[in-house]
């Protein structure tokens, strides 16, 4: 008998670093840099906004007048900075947008997730995602060129750039993203629930109404909140469709001005470091805080679902 075959070949040196090791290390560094830079940028933006905005908050801010007055006259002498009308503008437009978008998007999500089959469903999903990809300036364009004359003719009002116009536009903009998220929430409801209800003789609508919607409740709330956040932060379409006049709206045909649109329209015309310049940054902080709070709430709600 010859030499016995080597049953346990000697292991390679334990500290050998092969190609895979180097690839692994470099990818780790690359990914780390990418991840960290996102956080750095966000912090950077935050610091930049607060640095300018706090200059105003701790300098010439009069809280009562800031939130309580409707007089936004940054260019008069002396200038007054009352944002009540701007807040009312943003709130009215977002509110109307949600009144339109919530029923439409929930309806669309229920149809896609629970009723549509095969091809119809695939086509609808793609269409909804395409809608979400339309740039906001295009929506603004539609508000200006299509909705405006339409409103003037239909309701016999002098100007069609108003709460109604921008609310509709914003609602259409927010609906696709809300639809997509709401549909995900419905899809996450285990199929065994539907099967159980179906085996008891429930109709499709009974299953949706009594089983699926209650089970998906939190996800649907998150979808609506993200839509609200989208509406709140939207600038271009609202700037173009709302009429952009400082006004406490009393009807849907009043022109209004939104917080976001104010910043976009005025920042380029102020001198750096002036009170006007700084108050716009304060508006930025306000928007930042509100959208952050909305998104955080939505996120916490969605996490709540996952835990269950």
């Amino acid at each position: 008998m010859g030499a016995a075959p080597e049953i346990h070949p000697r292991p390679a040196a334990a500290d050998r670093r092969d190609l895979a090791w180097w690839v692994d290390k470099s990818v780790a560094i690359l990914v780390f840099t990418g991840g960290i830079s996102a956080i750095v940028f966000i912090l950077g933006i935050f610091v930049f906004i607060t640095k300018e905005g706090f200059g105003f908050i701790f300098g010439s801010l009069d809280i009562g007048g800031f939130f309580g007055s409707t007089k936004w006259r940054p260019t008069s002498t002396p200038p007054t900075y009352g944002i009540l009308a701007l807040l009312a503008g943003t709130a009215s437009v977002t509110g109307l947008a949600m009144l339109i978008a919530v029923p439409f998007s929930l309806g669309a999500a229920i149809y896609i997730a629970e009723f549509a089959k095969g091809k119809t469903r695939e086509v609808l999903k793609v269409l909804v995602e395409m809608l979400a990809a339309i740039p906001s300036v295009v929506w603004g364009f539609i508000g200006l060129m299509v909705m405006n004359p339409l409103i003037i003719n239909a309701f016999d009002v002098p100007v069609g750039l108003c709460v109604l116009n921008s609310g509709v536009i914003l609602g259409l903009m927010a609906a696709p993203i809300m639809t997509t998220i709401a549909e995900d929430a419905l899809k996450a409801v285990p199929d065994t629930y539907r099967e159980a209800a179906e085996a008891m003789g429930a109709t499709r609508w009974q299953i949706v109404w009594k089983v699926v919607l209650p089970a998906a409740k939190t996800g649907l709330v998150a979808a609506v909140l993200l839509g609200v956040g989208r509406g709140f932060g939207e600038t271009m379409a609202v700037l173009m469709a709302s009429g952009h006049s400082v006004n406490l709206p009393t009807s849907v045909f009043d022109s209004v001005r939104a917080l976001t649109a104010t910043i976009a329209a005025e920042l380029g015309e102020t001198s750096v470091g002036s009170d006007h310049y700084r108050v716009l940054f304060t508006l930025g902080i306000l928007l930042f805080v509100v959208t952050f709070a909305i998104n955080l709430t939505a996120d916490l709600i969605v996490r709540g679902i996952r835990k269950k």
């Binding site: 159980a196 085996a199 089983v211």
Partner: peptide, 17 residues
Amino acid sequence: VRKHIGMVFQRPNPLPL
């Protein structure tokens, strides 16, 4: 039909109610 024919499944599937 299903009203008169009850079904019990392999994994218990009570509704989340």
